[in-house]
Every structure is written in structure tokens, then in C-alpha cells.
């Protein structure tokens, strides 16, 4: 019946009968089309200028993109990021437990740590650790300079910095879990550890993962700061090359592209981790 009505639609009288249902005509969105065209044109112009500008020296970028020195720098950046992330979140989880503890001394220590290490700029902290020998020439009879190589300084400094932020992320995640969940677990006789690992943490992860993913990407690029203490990460490796060849821009492009590639991969990974921890919640009631 409906197809019949449609077939006759053009010749149908202006005033529909009482049984006819009026057709819905969507609004024409000219503004959206205009905006899309303008944005695409601007994007195209910007892209064309990047491709055609000879100063980028894309052939040089291609030459250096996978050279040994650059790949070794990339590798250091990757493992430094991973180590700092793991140690930072382990320490951060401990600090979050301090801050949520019933013990006022632990709470104060946790808060104090977070305040201190969020207030020291990471650059200042790295320089302090790098010069720790001036404060403590020897530790347990070993010369401090021998104890802390530049890479070790990078790990320690970045981890302490990361932990302060991780503590807040973890604490926020734990606070986002309904207190009734803990009580339900207590009523069932579940022990403290079990309650933490099986009930609270998996639910807290939903709020922890997005900011943690953000921090991971931030840390990946943040590690480039270790170039100031001569740790040959991705950025410093490219700097070493352009100090020799004076091809500053193409080598910075090499580093930039690698950071972009890794960030893209991490973003995809984060999507799947988020999906995993969202199980049981995405369905409608």
C-alpha cells in the first residue's frame, strides 16, 4: 500500500486525505557543506606547501629515516618510555594507596610527594640528579658519579616525576568505583587483596586507562628532554647527525615522523585496552 502511495505522490492532490501520513523532509545543511569545503581547501594548500617546499628536503629525510643511529635512538626512547611508565605507575599506585589510607601519616607523605614532584620542573629535576655528586659525593663508599650514569639519571628523574601524576590518576580511578562494591565484596567474605585485584581495580581501570594513555604518549615525547643530559634517545641521535651535517630541518622531521608513528600505534592499542575494560557496561539496560 505504501509503495502505491509513493508511486502516485507527484500527482497527488495538495491537501492529503485524513489517512495520509505526511512525509518528513530533512533540513538542507548548506553551512556544513561550505565549512567542509573551506577546511579541505585550506588543508590541501598547507599540505601542498609542505610537499613543495624544498627546504624540508624529503629525500634527506628518507635517507636517514632508518639509519642505525636513528633506530638505536628510537629503541632507547621506546624502552625508556616503557620502563618509566611501569615504574612510575607502580610507585604511583603505592602513593595512591598512601593517599587513600586511613593512616594520617601515610596520607600526608603521599600528598607531600605529589605536591613536591609536581612542583619541580622535570628539566630542573634531571639537572639536579645529573649533579647529585655535588650534594652526595659518595653513597655507601661508591662514587655517586659512577653510580648514576646519564641513562640511570633519566630513568630515576622521569620515574619520580611520572609517579606523582600516576598517583593522581590511580587515586581518581579508585574513587570512581562505587563504595558499595567493596562492601558487597566484604559481605561475601572476600579478603583485602582479592577485593582490590578482582573487584576494585578492574572497575577503576575504566577511568584509569584514558588518562594513562594520555600520559604514555606524553612520556614518549617527554623523554626527548633527556637529550639535555646527553642520553642518545631519538631526538639526541638526530641532533648528533645534524650537528655534523647541518641538515637541521630534515633530521627534526625524521624524529617528528617517528614520534607520530609510535603515537599512532599507541592510540590504536589504547582503543583496544579501553574496550577490554568496558566489558559489561556498553550494553543498554
Amino acid at each position: 500500500m505504501s509503495s502505491d502511495t509513493l508511486a502516485h505522490a507527484p500527482t497527488a492532490p495538495e491537501t492529503p486525505g485524513p489517512a495520509a501520513v505526511p512525509r518528513i523532509v530533512p533540513q538542507r545543511r548548506y553551512g556544513q557543506w561550505t565549512a567542509a569545503v573551506v577546511v579541505l581547501v585550506l588543508l590541501g594548500l598547507a599540505l601542498a606547501s609542505v610537499v613543495r617546499n624544498q627546504a624540508f628536503q624529503w629525500d634527506v629525510v628518507a635517507d636517514y629515516f632508518t639509519t642505525g643511529a636513528v633506530l638505536r635512538g628510537l629503541w632507547l626512547t621506546l624502552w625508556l618510555t616503557a620502563v618509566v611508565m611501569v615504574l612510575g605507575f607502580a610507585l604511583g599506585a603505592l602513593l595512591a594507596a598512601f593517599r587513600l589510607s586511613a593512616n594520617p601519616v601515610l596520607r600526608a607523605v603521599g600528598s607531600g610527594y605529589v605536591w613536591l614532584f609536581r612542583s619541580i620542573p622535570i628539566l630542573v629535576q634531571l639537572l639536579l640528579w645529573f649533579n647529585i655528586g655535588a650534594l652526595y659525593p659518595t653513597v655507601l663508599g661508591v662514587r655517586t658519579v659512577n653510580l648514576l650514569s646519564p641513562v640511570a639519571v633519566a630513568v630515576v628523574g622521569l620515574t619520580l616525576h611520572e609517579a606523582a601524576y600516576a598517583a593522581e590518576v590511580v587515586r581518581g580511578g579508585i574513587l570512581s568505583v562505587d563504595r558499595g562494591q567493596v562492601e558487597a565484596a566484604q559481605a561475601l567474605g572476600l579478603g583485602r587483596l582479592r577485593r582490590w585485584w578482582r573487584i576494585v581495580l578492574p572497575q577503576a581501570m575504566r577511568s584509569i586507562v584514558p588518562p594513562a594513555g594520555n600520559m604514555l604518549i606524553g612520556t614518549l615525547k617527554g623523554t626527548s628532554i633527556v637529550s639535555v643530559i646527553a642520553v642518545d634517545d631519538l631526538l639526541f641521535s638526530t641532533q648528533l647527525i645534524y650537528h655534523r651535517t647541518y641538515q637541521v630541518i630534515p633530521l627534526l622531521m625524521v624524529a617528528t615522523l617517528w614520534y607520530a608513528v609510535v603515537t599512532g600505534v599507541l592510540g590504536i592499542g589504547q582503543h583496544y585496552v579501553e574496550k577490554h575494560y568496558a566489558r559489561g557496561t556498553e550494553q543498554a539496560r
Binding site: G180, Q181, E183, A184, A185, A187, L188, G189
Partner: peptide, 18 residues
């Protein structure tokens, strides 16, 4: 406590578990 079962007004099932 395991010899006592408790049923809450708001169920309090663990949402991330089947």
C-alpha cells in the same frame, strides 16, 4: 561472615563479571 548471606537493596552485583 561467610556463614551469613547479605542481599542489598541496590543489588551490588559486580558489573565487570558475568
Amino acid at each position: 561472615r561467610t556463614k551469613i548471606g547479605f542481599v542489598f537493596q541496590d543489588f551490588r552485583l559486580f558489573p565487570h563479571l558475568t
